[in-house]
Design a protein around this nucleic acid. Structure first.
Length: 493
RNA sequence: GCCGCGUUCGUCUAGGGGUCCAGGACGCCGCCCUUUCACGGCGGUAGCACGGGUUCAAAUCCCGUACGCGGUACCA
């Protein structure tokens, strides 16, 4: 049987980075086995539905390089791929369960359920639930006379369908990542399967869809592990073979706990995939980083393309414990991929970014040289613009830290250097000559190299650090360099 | 509280009874290179949660404790 996996997010917001990793593991698993990667939108909670979320999910997956084989945007044979559009079938399945004695109608109002909980809490039960004991004293098709049940149904009273969880049973299943996991049904409540608005809950829809869509492996976050026994009970009630389960470790925040939006942002970590897109991260870097967050191929390698990851990935090498998101390591990956990207590929992106910042990148040749000069010192594309803005516009101010290196004799040194280079013709204004000129200035004034170089750098770039100075000066050109020196001499006396 | 899952350097991990006084990567520190900042090279720092067992031998197996995380909804 060929492998079919699904990524099944609910469209309640932008695609979370944890969701992206879950999608990635599903994708890698599918590709590794030559299987199918399905996207299913779980929009059964109409109150939490967010407009545009589905588009964001699809766009995010595409940006990361994951190709969806089947989904709402690419219908296959088992659609539709949005649960809201499959609504009709769920009730039939729920009824099937009622008929087989595995589920029942419940007419209790939320208030009545609250009352029951309060009552039980008061009598010492810390976590009361609607279960095999309490259902006996509630209003449902198990306790109500048959004719009243029919009367209520016919009258259109609100009802839900609940799973009739067996009283004392052990539910065991094998999880590909965790091994055998076991639960007692005594700890499970009679999970609502159909809500009073006619929509199924996650649990029913998920099981029905995974089965009807031919899903062979359920790879999802660990937050689902606790409800997995309910799902196993459902498969059994339907008489279906359950898919193989694999519950992924969660991505944790550096301060501990699930990487929530609030937490992550206060720690400087973008949570939504769209923030990485907007933040100009390299998708290859994020993918590589995420793949290694909770998985490793078992050797000392660190760098792999999506395609290589597909070949290497196996679920038995996924770790069990939660993994803390390490932003610095992500940046290391990003830097790596930037360096691997050619100047030609970088150029149009840098150009767009520069233009967005209101900078003129001059000629293609000019831009390319800027990128070459900065290539090794940048860790994210937008830094080409931030670090190299002086290439595109005359600096309007001087960096505060740089100014600490502007000493009393600096104006004299810069002036001396200026005298050396202003006699050069435009053709002679090359890196080598500019360096010689500086060396001569150094020698004639009997000072250290830095005593002249740093002030010249500050005067011409406004910064106390940056690319190789002489090629940079050459690129900026004689007129611009001299004019910047004059300005600096005036302003930094 | 109850249920479930987990726990190897600060972080991500390798390791699955002897080859481990625990290997790699990020970070951090130092040195080299060097015109600055980087890159690069070299080196260093730091860990088997704890307590019992089993065994000739345990990071590896078992039990317990602690801690962490998740779940405990007509949310997913």
């Amino acid at each position: 049987m060929s492998v079919r996996v699904r990524f099944a997010p609910s469209p309640t917001g932008f695609l979370h980075i944890g969701g992206l990793r879950t999608a990635l593991y599903n994708y890698l698993f599918a590709r590794h086995h030559g299987g199918t990667f399905v996207l299913r939108i779980e929009d059964t909670d109409q109150t939490r539905y967010v407009e545009g979320a589905e588009d964001d999910i699809i766009r995010s997956l595409e940006w990361a390089g994951m190709t969806i084989d089947e989904g709402p945007n690419k219908p296959g044979e088992v659609g539709p791929y949005r649960q809201s559009e499959r609504k009709a079938m769920y009730l039939d399945y729920a009824k099937q369960l009622i008929e087989s004695g595995n589920a029942y109608y419940a007419f209790d109002t939320p208030e009545e359920i609250d009352e029951m909980r309060e009552r039980l809490k008061a009598s010492g039960n810390p976590s009361p639930s609607y279960d095999s004991i309490t259902r006996q004293s509630m209003k449902n098709s198990l306790t109500l006379p048959k004719d009243e049940v029919e009367r209520r149904l016919a009258a259109g009273d609100d009802y839900v369908v609940r799973l009739k969880v067996p009283r004392r049973e052990t539910v065991k299943f094998e999880d590909l990542i965790r091994g055998v996991v076991s639960f007692e049904t005594a700890g499970l409540d009679d999970q609502v399967l159909m809500k009073s608005d006619g929509m199924p809950t996650y649990h029913l829809a998920n099981v029905v869809d995974d089965h009807t869509m031919g899903i062979t492996h359920v790879i999802r976050g660990e937050e689902w592990l606790s409800s997995a026994p309910k799902h196993m009970l459902l498969y059994k009630a339907f008489g279906w073979e359950p898919p193989t389960m694999a519950h992924l470790p969660l991505i944790m925040s550096p301060s501990g706990g699930k990487l929530s939006k609030r937490k992550a942002e206060s720690e400087g970590i973008p949570v939504n995939t769209k923030d990485y897109i907007a933040g100009n991260y390299e998708p290859e870097a994020l993918v590589n980083f995420l793949a290694y967050l909770g998985w490793s191929p078992g050797d000392d390698s660190e760098i792999h393309s999506l395609q290589e990851l597909c070949e290497l990935f196996t679920l038995d090498r996924v770790s069990k414990g939660g993994a803390v998101f390490n932003h610095k390591k992500l940046m290391w990956y990003n830097e790596h991929y930037i360096r691997e990207t050619s100047v030609a590929d970088l150029a149009p992106r840098v150009k767009t970014l520069a233009e967005e910042a209101g900078l003129d990148t001059k000629s293609d040749e000019y831009l390319n040289t800027v990128i070459e000069l900065l290539h090794e010192r940048v860790s994210k594309v937008d830094e080409f613009v931030a670090m190299g803005s002086f290439f595109f516009e005359t600096p309007s101010e001087y960096d505060e830290n740089a100014l600490k290196k502007w000493k009393e004799d600096s104006p004299a040194m810069v002036a001396a250097y200026k005298a050396k280079i202003e006699v050069l013709s435009d053709d002679e204004f090359k890196a080598a000559a500019l360096k010689t000129a500086l060396e001569e200035t150094v020698a004639e004034n009997e000072v250290g190299f830095g005593k002249v170089m740093m002030p010249v750098r500050i005067a011409t770039t406004g910064q106390g650090f940056g690319p190789d100075l002489f090629p940079a000066l050459e690129l900026m050109g004689k007129d611009e360099v001299l004019s910047r020196i004059d300005t600096a001499l005036e302003r930094l006396r």
